[in-house]
Computed example of a mutant assay.
Amino acid sequence: MPGTAASANASGQGRLHGIGQVLALLQPEFPELTPSKLRFLEEQGLVSPARTAAGYRKFSDADVERITVVLSMQRDHYLPLKVIRAHLESIDAGETPALPGAANSASFLAGARRYRRAELIQAAGATRALLDEAISASLLPAAEQYGDDALGVLTALVALRGVGIEARHLRGLRAAAEREAALVERAIAPSRRSDPADKARAAEAALELAGHLETVRTSVVRSALSTLGR
């Protein structure tokens, strides 16, 4: 059960944030985050914000970090919320379960890190010019802060550049991704109603479908490359 704002402060959870403040903190990295999405995460038992006497939700720093982890797991691993909830419940119980679909659960959960542009460039071993090229090719968004997925993309671009594959050569990936997104949008259109909860469920279904598309795409690419060893 959610606690009160007063009890949250007393328990040493630090600052408390309203919904608008949480959106301001996280939307640069997760632009799809909305008030209805936050309420849906609460309904699904993934976060339990405190409440003021007037009933307003107040999120602690720990809540914000947990939301970051949940959204990162959705975005980076296409995991449904029920799987994420079960995984986090195991972590809360003191267990160390492997993250479904990820090789290193511990580092992911300890991370959910955000990088400023200079930090991202340094961590990836890249250059400012390469980051700018990635943004120009629509492979990365223009932002002040980035997550671990952006680090993975930029690190991959560094390796690709080493063999002569430049970011500009990959512009077609954005077009292909937009075509796949259009397929997913058409598939979930019947389930998207005006109710915020329905919209949040449709968004979760979209992420699951994206995961299936990723599986198919990876298999097709591997099949195409399999002839190289013959």
Rank of each mutant, 00 (worst) to 15 (best):
V216S: 07
S107G: 11
D63F: 05
Y115Q: 02
E42L: 00
A197E: 14
P100I: 03
D76F: 02
R75F: 03
Q27L: 02
I19W: 01
K37L: 12
P31L: 07
R230L: 12
R75P: 12
Q74E: 11
R57N: 08
P141K: 14
Q122N: 12
Q44C: 09
H169M: 14
Y146S: 05
G125K: 04
A112I: 01
L81W: 00
R192Y: 06
S7Y: 06
I84P: 14
L26M: 01
G152T: 02
V83M: 09
A187Q: 09
K82P: 00
V158W: 04
A197V: 05
N104V: 13
A167W: 01
A126C: 05
A200E: 03
S105P: 14
L131W: 11
V83I: 12
P141R: 15
L173D: 02
G55P: 15
S107W: 04
N9G: 11
L79G: 05
E180I: 07
A189F: 03
G211R: 06
V22L: 08
E208K: 09
A156Y: 01
A53S: 09
E166F: 13
I135N: 04
A124N: 04
R217Y: 08
S191T: 11
D61K: 02
R128M: 08
H87V: 07
R171G: 15
I165H: 14
H169F: 09
T227W: 03
V22R: 02
A137D: 06
A123T: 07
L33K: 03
V220F: 07
T96Q: 15
L99N: 10
A110S: 13
F40Y: 15
E95T: 10
T4S: 08
D63S: 00
A175N: 12
D149K: 03
A62Q: 12
L228N: 11
A86F: 00
A205D: 09
V220W: 04
D92R: 14
E133D: 13
K58A: 14
E29L: 11
R117V: 07
L16H: 00
A5P: 05
F40K: 03
L16E: 02
R193A: 14
L213C: 10
P35C: 02
R85A: 07
A224C: 13
H87I: 04
A224Q: 15
N104Q: 10
Q122E: 15
L88W: 03
S48F: 03
L38G: 04
D132E: 15
T4D: 00
Q145M: 10
S90R: 15
E204R: 01
S223P: 12
Y56H: 15
A181C: 13
L81A: 08
D61T: 09
T34H: 02
A203P: 09
F59P: 01
H212C: 10
A5T: 11
G125A: 10
L207P: 04
R201P: 12
R113Q: 10
R217I: 05
E185V: 12
Q145C: 12
G101F: 01
G172Y: 00
S191E: 14
K199M: 06
V69K: 13
L157Y: 03
R66Y: 13
T4R: 03
D198S: 12
D63C: 01
S7Q: 14
R128V: 07
E43W: 00
